[in-house]
């Protein structure tokens, strides 16, 4: 589905990603872990198409297309969804209106008719239940005045509504209490299918108790320094990142 090859990216001349290689196939869940400042969120931003980052080397192919050639909105329309680490507040714009606009723009891109209001509302009802999102939140302004947990649940709700092929969850677990974490993870799991895939970016192993990954990658200093099965996450939880850092240092 997505193939990242030797990806290098920098911001203001400062290299952050220094050669990432990763392939994700339909149906898979990949976890990317790593200490603070290792480049996890940069990877998410680069894939979603944030313009502050400069791609200095490498390629990203998504469903056979050169992803790096596409603008952020076209990547979204092709089926990439980023659950933001810090969801943005848009005062005065209702969640519903926001989503309806997004859905219809995506449909327009695909040459489809706008979604009939009845179908849309039905979908809102169905998907908001998935993340136990209060109905009133749907009519409130996007993320405005939402608690941290509500914002994250809202991200998953949007994900459910837009039905992406590849979801990138950027630190979706940060700032969540156990209940909220369970709801969010539950939502993600229910959305999982043989046709879509997810990249779960997290600092802690905790989220992976709920969302079970097929692969775990450790990102350190802009590179993936270790990949392995889900057990790797447990090992990291136990031993921390230091042993990997040492290994990396030895190799250099």
């Amino acid at each position: 589905m997505i193939k990242i090859e030797n990806l290098h990216a920098s911001i203001d001349g400062q290299p952050i990603l220094k050669g990432i290689n990763l392939e994700v196939k339909p149906g898979e869940v990949h976890a990317i872990m790593g200490p603070n400042g290792s480049g996890k969120s940069t990877l998410a931003s680069v894939l979603a198409g944030r313009e502050e980052y400069e791609i200095t080397e490498g390629s990203v192919t998504f469903e056979g297309k050169d992803l790096l050639e596409l603008g952020a909105e076209d990547r979204a329309r092709e089926g990439i969804f980023l659950a933001f680490q810090y969801p943005v507040e848009i005062p005065g714009v209702s969640n519903i209106n926001f989503l309806k606009t997004a859905i219809n723009e995506i449909r327009k891109y695909k040459g489809e008719e706008p979604m009939p209001a009845k179908d849309f509302l039905k979908r809102v009802k169905e998907k908001s239940a998935l993340v136990e999102l209060d109905n009133s939140l749907a009519s409130r302004s996007v993320n405005e005045g939402f608690s941290g947990g509500e914002k994250k649940r809202n991200e998953i709700f949007q994900m459910a509504m837009l039905d992406p092929k590849l979801s990138i969850l950027d630190e979706t677990d940060s700032g969540l209490d156990i209940d909220a974490l369970r709801i969010v993870a539950n939502g993600v799991n229910k959305l999982k299918s043989a046709d879509n895939a997810s990249i779960v970016i997290t600092h802690y192993q905790r989220l992976l108790d709920y969302i079970v990954p097929d692969f775990v990658h450790v990102l350190y200093n802009g590179k993936i320094i270790k990949s392995g099965p889900k057990e790797l996450a447990l090992e990291l939880e136990e031993k921390g990142y230091d042993w990997l850092k040492k290994e990396e240092a030895l190799e250099v």
Partner: peptide
């Protein structure tokens, strides 16, 4: 950027905001 990431073009995003 948030709107773009949800598939809107820039003009739509600005209108909405």
């Amino acid at each position: 950027f948030y709107c773009l990431q949800r598939g809107m073009d820039e003009q739509t995003a600005i209108g909405l905001i």
